[in-house]
Amino acid sequence: MQGLRGNAAMDDIIKRNPIRSLIIAILIAILLWLIFAPWPPELVAKWGRKQIFLNALFGGITLGALYFLVAAGFTLIFGLMRVVNLAHGSLFLLGGYLGYEISTATGSWFLAFPIVFIVVGLLGLLMQRFIFSKMEGEELRQTLVSIGISIVFADLMLWLWGGQSYSILAPNFLQGPMELPIINSVNANTGATNWLRYPAVRVWILIAAIVIGVAMWLVLNRTALGMLIRAGVDDREMLAASGVRIQLVFLVVFGFGAGLAGMAGIIGGTFQSLSPGEDTRFLLASLVVVIVGGMGSIVGAAIGALIIGVTEQMGFVYAPTYSVVFTFLIMAAVLAFRPQGLLGSRR
């Protein structure tokens, strides 16, 4: 659980790996230059217009933000309870469908979030209370049960909502593009700068994900509840032995993770669309994110989500046939060289 502890390890890493840190710093500098500086003509000739690159990059970051919201609950549940909840994707899709119903019925996009969080969170609570807690320690059985639940949910949702795809409409002020303080291109004749325009809703999704991520980090690292959760991740038995009602902590975390997946479903439905099969897609995305980032680490999930999201979008733009392969290669490389994930701890 190094990831949750955060900054203290950072200086240590730089001291231990000066060369690697330098390379990473140079890469970040190049990336920043690519984003902010107007591109010289040679580069445009080679890579295409800067707009394409920026769109892929920001699309990837936004997608990463969405992946993070789904994967954060998954990794937290895994880290604390050792439950691999393969029904997590179903919770995502269910949240999306419910969000669609609520926002079309009430006309309020924002109202959908708290309701979905509570409903899907409650569902998660029930799953933990009546199913997973009954077979604690039997990891394989819990996983199999979660697979069974996901099959049942997938069919129930297909029954209720059919096979067509749904899209949730964002409220008016979130629609349309938004100018970002990033130079898109400079008009050679007039010298006027052309700023990057980007869909507003995606910017807000990114901001929301960052806010939620930071809030989670603060709760985990600065509150009593967070302390209990971190202690539970490190040593569940010891925490239970010291008198904490650990089942309650489990319930809180499971409910929160499920609710977060449900809310991510609304965002996914706004940002892309909802249809049968999206549950598996997001389950797999969170699996890969968590494998890359390290199981049970929130910061790891954020980094993993960013890497996978950006890779996926870049792949779609620059090498459409092989975009999946890049994602997979990253996962394989992490497994080969760091099986516990980038920020995971060795168990």
Binding site: V84, L287, I291, M295, F328
Partner: peptide
């Protein structure tokens, strides 16, 4: 973990 990795 095996389930997750083979699934991926």
């Amino acid at each position: 973990y095996t389930i997750m990795i083979t699934l991926a």
